[in-house]
Write a protein that binds this DNA or RNA. Structure first.
Lengths: 217, 217
DNA sequence: TAACTCCTTAACAATTCCTTAATGGCTACG
DNA sequence: CGTAGCCATTAAGGAATTGTTAAGGAGTTA
């Protein structure tokens, strides 16, 4: 995802290191590819046709599946003004060109080594092929985004926090509805039904006489 | 507080950003002005008549009211030897000349951001087919330009800064109206309505029981 | 001061969501 | 087989939340 001149150079070096590489020639393409392949690392040139690197970064960072992706800017020295803007939109690193292949590779592996990113807030739960995103109240399944009403979302979120653990209807009412709310236990059933309807029947299973649980193989 | 040559240039650019600017033509003047106005930021040229930047910095830093003031050095590349001395006397940053206006402004706002919680206020956000322009308080959609009143603009701008993230009405009030303003939460609804009326219904969606979010697919 | 824009509030309409109740299916067990 | 117990599913009414409009006030400009 950068200037043509350096594109093949980078691709060659990265592939030699065993990385799988996709390239794009402008910002829009970059966003499309990111959406499709969910890469672990995105290299962006500040200067790109149609949409510059900063905007591209902002868009990619905004995709829920990409919160754990590393985004690194590459730029010629003359363009150093954009460093601040880059970090503003959530870049992880900022590399000046020209850079020697070995130096570039070591910067990149350093990124993956410093795994500090994985201490993730509980704003998201990634479980199986589900991504449960509390900031947007949406569920992502295989590139589909499903928006759930509040109670349904809370229910799925709560179950997914403790996969394979069975919760009784009363447990669920206590934790999601609150201790001072009195609704019939059957209400839970209806919500379970609606969640299953939307995300599929395979994620939540019933344990007869006990309650419900989130399945994780 | 720097060479005459760049003084008016800097003053012009800073004032365009809304900063109040005082200028001095030598180190003694600079100290006098600092004593009088307690500025939030002092820009110093290393080379100044009568007293150089390093000494000026030391004096200003020694004033008790100035401990929280940012002091930044500006210098031509040839003079970079003094970098160490600058930090020795308590400078916060060190900027090489020549520097483009945008770059300088970016560095300066970065300084303030580091300390206070002031948010990223990049002048433009390009998102989806929207261009949100802070300098003119206008939105550009497909060759149409829409001008928004302040509150409506701030609302859209704030939401667009974190696409797909849901904000409660209280979040929005806190961030846009301010912590010490007491208006009803439903006021937000009315502004949302007006923004939707002007830019279309597809950009902001409601998450019932939670709040509003800017949509980005 | 008049004319204007913008902000806030309030009232009512519209909509979505939640809960309940009713019905039917499935399984276990006598 | 029949029955009891538990769950799935559906639909309907009501509760809660949001949409929409309008009016008045604050502040601004001519």
């Amino acid at each position: 995802m950068m200037k043509n001149l350096s594109l093949s150079f980078l691709k060659y070096n990265l592939e030699k290191q065993g990385y799988e590489v996709k390239t794009a020639s402008d910002g829009f393409q970059a966003v499309e590819i990111a959406k499709k392949f969910h890469p672990d690392l995105v290299l962006l040139d500040i200067m790109m046709p149609k949409m510059d690197g900063v905007e591209t970064c902002r868009l990619i960072r905004a995709m829920p599946e990409m919160v754990n992706t590393f985004i690194v800017f590459l730029t010629a020295r003359a363009e150093e003004y954009s460093e601040v803007a880059a970090f503003d939109v959530g870049a992880d690193d900022y590399i000046l060109k020209p850079i020697k292949p070995r130096a570039l590779m070591s910067r990149i592996s350093a990124l993956f080594r410093r795994d500090s990113k994985k201490e993730n807030t509980s704003a998201q739960i990634k479980i199986g092929d589900l991504l449960i995103d509390r900031t947007s109240y949406t569920i992502h399944v295989k590139d589909k985004e499903i928006s759930l009403p509040k109670k349904e979302f809370e229910l799925l979120y709560f179950l997914a926090q403790s996969p394979n653990k069975v919760f009784s209807r009363d447990d669920l009412l206590q934790n999601i509805w609150g201790a001072d709310v009195y609704v019939l236990a059957r209400t839970v059933d209806v919500h379970i039904r609606k969640v299953r309807e939307k995300i599929g029947d395979d994620y939540i299973s019933t344990v007869k006489g006990v309650g419900y649980k989130f399945n994780l193989n």
